[in-house]
Simulated assay, not measured.
Amino acid sequence: MTKTPLFILLLLVLLTSCGTVIKTLAGFKNPKVEDKKELNRYFSELVPNSNTYFLKVNKTGNEYEIFQAIGAGLTSEILIFSQSGEKYCYQGIEECSGIQMQSVFKNFNENYFPCKEESSLNLSTYLEKILDIDGNSIKLENLPKTDFYIFQHWNKYSGTRKKLQQDVNWLLDLKKKSNLNVTMLFVNGDMLEEWGLEKNAELPIKFKKDGDKFTMTFGKLPLKK
């Protein structure tokens, strides 16, 4: 069995702060290996006129890279970058991610500032982790000109189709009502067949509660034979 990276454990701890972790786990299914074109069609049916990007694995079948991509797809962290590429972090007092997201569009300048902690993640390094539907790398010059970019991950296994549609529409509605010059970009976090995985196979995941923390244990990756 392979233990999850630390950042997944931290994700689940953060979710407990606004009471959403149980709801999340209640709708959580074992991730299934998906086809990228089918995922693109699934998203376009839910959110017409919106594109989705996909997480990249550089070496097909590399378990470490695949688990890293799965972990990135699980996180609910709000990734915000300025046009110059600097990452912005929430520095208010609210712990619930939903309230933090509302503050992006209602009072961004009061709650979001360049991240204090040293991090190698900036817009350029993040764009290296994702691809478009045709497998092309994403270049900054190809993105819309805007003051800020927000990247939101989504996947099929964390909840129902209806819940995903509600969440995405909620975000787009917040943006529509805001004066903030921002572009929303959606990134799929499902396991992809092109990573060297067996289509429609599942990755078993077990949850364990220890006090107010949850840990996740992954089963064996369904690598393509």
Rank of each mutant, 00 (worst) to 15 (best):
D147K: 09
F54D: 03
Y90M: 00
I8N: 04
L79N: 10
D132N: 10
G19M: 03
L127T: 05
T20I: 11
I80N: 00
V47N: 06
N62E: 10
Y90K: 00
F54A: 01
N200P: 08
T146L: 03
M1H: 08
S124G: 11
K177F: 03
D190E: 00
K177R: 03
P114M: 00
V57S: 07
T24I: 11
S103D: 13
Q165A: 13
S82P: 00
I22T: 11
T75S: 15
I78V: 15
L14C: 10
K32L: 14
L180S: 05
E110W: 02
V104N: 01
N155G: 05
G92W: 00
I93D: 11
K208H: 15
S84I: 07
Q102H: 07
D134Q: 12
T75D: 14
K175A: 01
C89A: 10
N30D: 15
N142R: 09
G19Q: 03
G73C: 04
L74I: 08
L143A: 04
D35P: 14
C96G: 05
K59I: 09
E194V: 06
C115Q: 02
Q100E: 07
T125A: 08
L140K: 14
T24K: 15
N169T: 06
E141N: 13
L140W: 03
L9W: 12
T60D: 13
K56T: 14
S119D: 05
F67R: 12
P222W: 05
S44P: 10
Q68P: 08
R41M: 08
Y64R: 11
N49I: 11
R161P: 07
